[in-house]
């Protein structure tokens, strides 16, 4: 640790712009996983890399005030969503984890294919974000 104060205004300004682009890219990867490369795992990793970029440009306290989330609960919610998606197939008399899809007429997007596999992917996404951010914050916190 050096004594003089450093001023990282270039890094902070770039981070404010770039982190939103990275978040948008991770959202795109998450949604495109059905028919193209991507999916919940890599989408979660890119989301947590956007948060890591915020952690690098700012500090742990600032990021916790921006995102007042306990990431352990995020991982737990992801596991719960994944299990609930798997168990939801029992309601229709289908085996565990069987999924279905249908074509719907959405107001803005037109005819869209919606699959329940996306809900399972959302669970994977939340687990990956939660676990990665928990690991990184735990390592960063210790003095």
């Amino acid at each position: 640790m050096r004594e003089h104060k450093t001023n990282d205004i270039i890094m902070q300004t770039v981070t404010k712009l770039v982190s939103f682009i990275i978040l948008l890219f991770s959202f795109y990867l998450f949604l495109s996983g059905h028919n193209a490369p991507g999916g919940g795992f890599v989408g979660g990793l890119i989301t947590s890399s956007a948060i890591v970029l915020l952690l690098l440009a700012f500090d742990l306290k600032t990021v916790q005030s921006i995102l007042p989330v306990n990431f352990i609960y995020v991982a737990g919610a992801g596991l719960l969503i994944a299990i609930a998606t798997g168990a939801g197939s029992f309601l229709f008399g289908a085996p565990f984890l069987s999924h279905t899809f249908g074509h719907f007429q959405l107001p803005l997007l037109g005819k869209t294919e919606l699959a329940t596999a996306t809900l399972f992917d959302l669970g994977v996404y939340l687990v990956v974000v939660g676990v990665t951010m928990t690991i990184i914050q735990t390592i960063g916190e210790e003095e």
Binding site: V42, V52, L56, L60, E141
Partner: peptide, 29 residues
Amino acid sequence: LLLGILSFIGTIAFAKFLEKGEIIENDRN
């Protein structure tokens, strides 16, 4: 795009380590 993002973040992390000695600060101010 992924490689661009990862190489950017990796370089910034290493630059911060060289400059400040720690990568993620607890409280900057």
